[in-house]
Design a protein around this nucleic acid. Structure first.
Length: 606
RNA sequence: GGGGCCGUAGCUCAAUUGGUUAGAGCAUCGGAUUGUCGAUCCGAAGGUUGAGGGUUCGAUCCCCUUCGGCCUCGCCA
């Protein structure tokens, strides 16, 4: 075999005169009857091969039969391209290889889509033929960036004394949290392992074991419906540290993230990353992961709304709801139907009952800024001025408002703010606004179950001064949790953990996890805490989302080599699939047909 | 489990209120071609309109069912 002496992307003008061998895929061929040109592709780039019928007629004859995606080896002399024939778009564009020997290493079927094609190809086809899709330089570069991120992370943690330690993939199922993927046990019939949702308990136990500093780049599994930015199996950069408070965890890990953005994108992010409380984030952005690339903050106008005569607002306030809104700069350009059909549908889909609006314009007679809309008449001139002041509204702005329970209002307005920010071009994709969101509530009240739920997870420590509230006011305890947010995307989150078994027990009580349940589910872990657990804390970063930001894609499948579809299938391997009866027998499992299938069977049988 | 968009040649798309033989570009195949680089020129082939059913004289188009892809709500301690 003609074995390469260098890669396709390598040769330069300085290599002229050398005889080299390259291997790669035929990217394109241009047959002029006389000369034949081949662009040969490997991971490093493209190089032009030239076949001359006069000097090497046999080689030229074979070259004419080459087709796209065939795999070849070519030996020849590097020579400069003639005057005016350089290709500035190729790194190797100054030179070409005059081929003297050619070996076809493999032929290829015509690919289902063009690697070079400018037209975008449907994702279904790309996933079916992922190996061809990945040949596209855009895709390879995403894989490369992902590799570099993990490499930077490993080097960083290693140099700071962290050990990478693997934790089990076959673990114990815990019913709270996301749905588990279950794996039947052959040796213990009727019992199941669960794939880890995260290595949470194991990494904490490693702290009890005096590992002191742990990290792992680890696959996690949550059997929930996918979204554009999440799928059932994903990768975390998982970290845990002993004898630390939240401050140290944040400083240690933000340095890595900033280094990654610097090395991959050349972006300079000042340290330390700023912090914002959960309360402020929810108040001003309606969500705990604010996009700080643009302003357009939400404003609460409950007080003004309660004084007006617009019944929708006053009734909502009477029932304990709030009224919040945002001011869209230059938003008066939106038509009434944009607002009353488009935006209103957008917020009602998110649970809001409606969307109130004002356009800001000068009064015809006084020339003073006022509010125009069908509901303006319910607001006195003074109230209108109060609103304009509150929203810092200017001429031609648009004020949009939602009235409802606080949770509903925020849930509708936060996505609306982001949608408008993107539409108005306020979201610069080259800008990265980092923020630590801190002071999360430890619990949130679960109305349906009549109990508290952990906002983060049940092992998150309360802030010390709020500890007494465990007895008196659990709903207002702040936790020592922190989320790292970039441009409205949560890329990591963690906390200082509870290391006191008594506090842990109290938290379980509030979550209405009985001692028996706690023992059954986390007994091994609680026991470990009793044998001298150091104060410890950690964090986990979503590698997939981080790489999405670094590669400027909003599709998680673009940053995973072999991703799953919306319905959890791998279109390449066609997983999941049925299995042989003998496999089921070994596991003592029986597959039950769906109810509707059984009904149909009964019908056809009778 | 709910809502929305989509499915036509290998790929990306078109096809008038429901009306002749379902078209185009790229790819493919054949031929031509003296330096191209998204080569060019000439020609050819390529279709169960995702599948099944219904309405109709007639369905890519309307209706129902179903499969698949994407987005989203719920869900994601």
């Amino acid at each position: 075999m003609l074995k390469r002496t260098q890669t396709c992307g390598q040769p330069r003008i300085s290599d002229v005169g050398q005889t080299i061998i390259v291997n790669g895929w035929v990217n394109s061929y241009r047959d002029h009857g006389n000369l034949v040109f081949i662009d040969l592709r490997d991971r490093k780039g493209l190089v032009q091969l030239v076949f001359d019928p006069e000097k090497y007629p046999q080689v030229h004859k074979i070259a004419r039969t080459l087709r796209c995606e065939w795999v070849i080896g070519a030996k020849g002399k590097v020579r400069p391209r003639g005057q005016g024939m350089e290709n500035p778009r190729l790194a190797t564009g100054q030179i070409e290889v005059a081929v003297e020997e050619l070996e076809i290493l493999n032929q290829a079927k015509t690919p289902p889509f063009e690697i070079d094609g400018s037209a975008s190809v449907g994702e279904e086809t790309r996933l079916q033929y992922r190996y061809i899709d990945l040949r596209r330089p855009e895709m390879l570069s995403k894989l490369a960036i992902r590799h570099r991120v993990t490499k930077i992370a490993r080097d960083y943690y290693d140099s700071n004394g962290f050990w990478e330690i693997e934790t089990p993939m076959l673990g114990k199922s815990t019913p709270e949290g996301a749905r588990d993927f279950l794996v039947p046990s052959r040796l213990y019939k009727g019992s199941f392992y669960a794939l880890p949702q995260s290595p949470q308990l194991f990494k904490q136990i490693l702290m009890v074991s005096n590992v002191d500093r742990y990290f792992q780049i680890v696959r996690c599994f949550r059997d929930e419906d996918p979204r554009a930015d999440r799928q059932a199996e994903f990768t975390q950069i998982d970290v845990e540290m002993s004898f630390v408070q939240s401050e140290e965890v944040m400083r240690m890990n933000e340095t890595l993230i900033v280094r990654i953005f610097k090395e991959i994108l050349g972006v300079n992010v000042p340290l330390p990353i700023r912090e914002m409380t959960y309360a402020q984030s929810v108040e001003e952005y309606g969500i705990d992961r604010p996009d700080l690339r643009f302003e357009m903050k939400l404003k609460t106008i409950t007080d003004i709304a309660s004084a007006c005569s617009f019944k929708v607002f006053t009734d909502t306030v009477k029932k304990g709801g709030i009224v919040k809104g945002l001011c869209v700069p230059g938003g008066a350009k939106y038509s009434r139907s944009d607002i009353e059909v488009g935006f209103t549908a957008f917020v009602t889909d998110l649970g809001a009952k409606g969307l109130a609006w004002f356009k800001v314009a000068p009064d015809e007679t006084t020339g003073k800024l006022g509010l125009k809309s069908s509901i303006a008449k319910f607001f006195t001139p003074e109230q209108q001025q109060q609103l304009i002041t509150k929203f810092e509204a200017k001429n031609d702005d648009l004020i949009l408002m939602v009235a409802d329970e606080a949770a509903t209002v925020n849930k509708a307005l936060a996505p609306l703010r982001v949608k408008l920010g993107k539409e108005l071009g306020l979201c610069d994709s080259n800008k990265f606004e980092f923020v630590w969101v801190v002071d999360f509530p430890l619990f949130e009240w679960n109305v349906n179950e009549n109990r508290f739920d952990s906002l983060h997870h049940p092992f998150t420590a309360p802030v010390p001064e709020d500890l007494p509230k465990l007895e008196t006011d659990p709903g207002h305890i702040r936790s020592q949790a922190y989320d790292l947010v970039v441009n409205g995307s949560e890329i990591g989150g963690g906390s200082v953990r509870i290391h006191d078994p008594q506090v842990q027990a109290k938290v379980f009580d509030l979550l209405k996890i009985t001692r028996q349940q706690a023992q059954d589910r986390f007994g091994f872990f609680l026991k470990a805490l009793e044998y001298g657990a150091p104060p410890h804390g950690g964090i986990a970063f979503g590698l997939d989302r981080m790489v999405m930001l670094l590669t400027n894609t909003d599709n998680i499948r673009d940053v995973i080599a072999f991703p799953k579809t919306q319905r959890g299938q791998c279109l390449l391997s066609e997983a999941p699939s049925t299995v042989d009866q003998s496999q089921l027998d070994e596991l003592n499992l029986r597959v039950q047909k769906h109810l509707h299938q059984m009904e149909e069977k009964e019908k056809s049988g009778s």
